[in-house]
Design a protein around this nucleic acid. Structure first.
Lengths: 256, 256
DNA sequence: CAACTAACCGAACGGTGTTTATTTAGGAGG
DNA sequence: CCTCCTAAATAAACACCGTTCGGTTAGTTG
């Protein structure tokens, strides 16, 4: 059918590669070398700022290089590829998430309230850093996630836990406390953690990708989502039913 | 000769432009013209099959064209751009979702069971068509969604509802039936619809992007998620509590 | 001060979506 | 039958993208 044509064409674009003895042409371009760690820092910083200036889709190696003041190729001296840069950004994201989690959880003593606070914190954090959230949780990246960023519960992770593992672990322990306190039906805590994560992620990701959907009331939706989940955990005639409501989002939706 | 073309803007591209008298080079390539609607059909079909063969990221205009047996540029005779092709795929996706919804809902009479069935149907459907799901619900596309695919509740949508609107409307009406039957706490049905959608979406999208996360039990997670949400709707001492459980997924996870 | 390491650059490769001017298939009208 | 004309299809280019490679050179070290 299709000619297919293979690659026989050999791109007749002149070249022929003369010795290219090109000496220093201009006097202006003074090439400044930097310590590798400093360059790495610059590159990551440039990538991050491009991230929230132009969004995840418009971060290119060329733009990063231009922002830093070097050529694209120079980046590869410091990072194996683009994913390696994003990897650092993801690690920082998880690091911040972990910190925010720790602060939030430390402010509540009662297990149920603590879990509620954790869930709200996750949602607010995600909505305040939408571009990074998209990168971390809404983009399937082969090597990245598997590389240890967000794989808790495995033996490997228990030995050298990543920030992602620790962050998930915090949610996990909040749920365990609630379940073990006997305040819920008889449920598998691990499964509950995953369900709560999924529910929170659902709200965050839908609000991010479908921000123009005619939502009835975004803040109320978040409140209700948290509420439904936690109510669903309680046993039939629980006296806690209906308590601990409210506590609206302290985050008026971050950027955008 | 004598083409009416009076403008001859001549893009400032160095010209050079030899007459390019290129005659039929090979004997094989017979240029066949097709009726526009037939070509459109071919292009969409090719795009769809590439979608599930190679995934959303590897569908390019060149690959589509090659599969159809034409050049890239020819596609632009029939579609304004790549998004326009994806648009058709999205419409078909919603059309199928709507149909599946209708069948599912028609098989249940009791409102709560009907809602449970709808939620499970959504999740199973999403997991059976992951690449399209990613395109429709996990990719922010400027013009696309706003173009009327999934914007229910607006006046415009009520006049000429899209398949997406109708699909969401089915979930909406399921929720309304349950709430109006007095089987739940006093909640805004629209808000509940959105929360249930978000929860279902959370499970589907996390399972899609993080399929390698060490999930405790994917099927059990889906069951629990549905369960928590519906339990959370019920009033405090509801006699329905704990009923209507189970009814595990009939879908053993579609492709991949 | 020479030698060496590695940060850096220029140029290219193969890929993407899209646009342009040109060619030509195939139906309609004389 | 034979023109004419519309529009489907083409080839070639444009401006991007991530990545690679060989040569250049800055800055340290022996």
């Amino acid at each position: 059918m299709a000619p297919k044509d293979a690659k026989a064409v050999k791109r007749p674009s002149t070249k022929v590669k003369p010795p290219a003895k090109a000496p220093r042409k201009g006097a202006a371009a003074v090439r400044r070398r930097l310590a590798p760690e400093e360059r790495r820092r610059q590159i990551v910083a440039a990538a991050k700022s491009l991230f929230l200036e132009e969004g995840i889709d418009h971060v290119s190696m060329r733009k990063i290089a231009r922002k830093v003041g070097i050529t694209q190729a120079a980046i590869y001296q410091h990072f194996e590829n683009k994913e390696a840069i994003l990897f650092v950004i993801i690690e920082d994201f998880f690091s911040d998430l972990l910190h925010v989690f720790e602060v939030a959880v430390s402010q509540e003593t009662e297990p149920a309230a603590r879990l509620r606070r954790a869930m709200r914190t996750y949602i607010d954090f995600g909505l305040s850093r939408t571009e990074e959230y998209r990168l971390v949780f809404m983009t399937p990246m082969s090597g990245l996630v598997r590389a240890g960023v967000a794989i808790p519960r495995t033996e490997e992770a228990k030995l050298t836990p990543s920030k992602g593992s620790l962050a998930f672990g915090m949610l996990d322990s909040c749920v365990h406390q609630v379940v073990e306190a006997g305040a819920t039906r008889d449920l598998d805590p691990d499964l509950v953690s995953e369900a709560i994560w999924a529910a929170g992620h659902g709200v965050v990701s839908l609000l991010i990708t479908h921000g123009h959907f005619p939502w009835t009331d975004k803040a109320a939706l978040i409140d209700l989502q948290i509420d439904l989940l936690l109510e669903g955990l309680l046993p039939a005639g629980s006296p806690a039913r209906g308590e601990n409501r409210g506590g609206g989002s302290s985050c008026p939706f971050g950027p955008r």
